[in-house]
């Protein structure tokens, strides 16, 4: 299977008055055709920054300092706004966290989707577009009548479903889902997750699923990356990482997630706060929170670097041996 997205050594920082905030540091990963890839980490670890950088939608003060993003073997960095616009949505689309705020409140839902479709395929007639929206709505479990409704008439779950329909409307090859269910109730979250899985299967899409919830990542993804302080600290097959986590931070994430099945066990907590991302060296930023650091880790001797431990499993070399 070929890679649809290849991200190599991507770094992005925000320029602020207190200094440069390194939100994405030297991130490398691949997403293959039809696969789902998970990005997990605590808030502020740079998950959303990665998503925004992939689409080149980062805020004005966000500057890409190095790296390449190859989508469908086209280099994305350095493209003009016009060329980018063609790739966004048509090739790559995003489902945002706040589905509530992503809709224009004074335009009907159907019209907003039609507008996006017109932008990308201007030759289609209105009825063709409407027909397609109907099909999409059926696919994500929405009633046809929603086309003629205003966003405020829809519940949170319905808005998020319509958002997925919007993301699908221009036949993308890759969907980035940035915490699409965070604001929703569990029952609705369950349904949305099912819809996402369904459309992925039907259209053979690739998916990047971003979440802080390790349980959702476990269910949704084939491969995953654990992010900490802007860097990927562990990367590999989801099953492999869950079975045999190597990085101390990954282990802690897994052991701090309560579950409703299995033995009720004592969960592990991680003390300390996430580090600030301003003016850091290239040493491991987890060492000061590491529960059982090795001497190398404690003294911050090692530079951060992913090393390969099996054919598809990479770990940052600093915290491998910390138990």
């Amino acid at each position: 299977m070929s890679s649809i997205l290849e991200v190599t050594n991507l770094s992005m920082h925000y320029e602020t008055i207190s200094g440069n905030v390194d939100a994405v540091k030297d991130v490398t990963f691949n997403v293959k055709q039809g696969e789902s890839f998970g990005l997990v980490g605590e808030s502020g670890c740079g998950k959303t920054s990665v998503a925004m950088t992939l689409l080149q939608l980062q805020p004005e003060n966000g500057k890409i300092s190095q790296g390449s993003i190859k989508f469908d073997s086209n280099e994305m960095i350095g493209l003009s706004e016009n060329e980018l616009r063609k790739i966004r949505w048509k090739g790559m689309s995003i489902v945002f966290q706040g589905a509530m705020n992503a809709w224009n409140p004074v335009v009907k839902v159907g019209e907003q989707i039609r507008e996006a479709m017109r932008e990308h395929s201007p030759n289609n007639s209105k009825s063709e577009n409407t027909k397609k929206i109907r099909e999409l709505f059926e696919m994500v479990g929405l009633d046809e009548s929603v086309i003629e409704r205003f966003p405020h008439e829809l519940s949170g779950g319905m808005k998020q479903r319509a958002m997925i329909a919007l993301a699908l409307s221009c036949d993308p090859k890759l969907i980035i889902a940035d915490e699409p269910t965070t604001a929703l109730d569990v029952v609705i979250q369950d349904q949305i997750l099912k819809e996402i899985r369904k459309v992925q299967e039907v259209f053979g899409l690739s998916l990047i699923y971003i979440s802080h919830d390790i349980a959702v990542i476990a269910e949704m993804t084939d491969n995953m990356a654990v992010m900490y302080a802007g860097s990927i600290v562990e990367l590999g097959k989801t099953e492999e990482i869950f079975k045999d986590p190597k990085h101390a931070y990954t282990r802690m994430l897994l052991e701090s997630t309560p579950s409703i099945i299995g033995e009720k066990k004592k969960l592990r907590s991680l003390d300390g706060e996430p580090p600030t991302l301003i003016n850091n060296d290239n040493k491991c930023l987890f060492s000061y929170r590491c529960p059982n650091p090795t001497n190398e880790c404690k003294n911050r001797e090692l530079d951060m670097e992913l090393i390969k431990i099996s054919s598809s499993h990479y770990v940052d070399k600093c915290c491998i041996d910390c138990e």
Binding site: V187, D213, A218, E219
Partner: peptide, 15 residues
């Protein structure tokens, strides 16, 4: 319904 909707942090488990 509520219990069956909770995601399980185990990729090998199918709800």
């Amino acid at each position: 319904r509520l219990i069956s909707s909770i995601p399980i942090p185990d990729p090998t488990y199918t709800r």
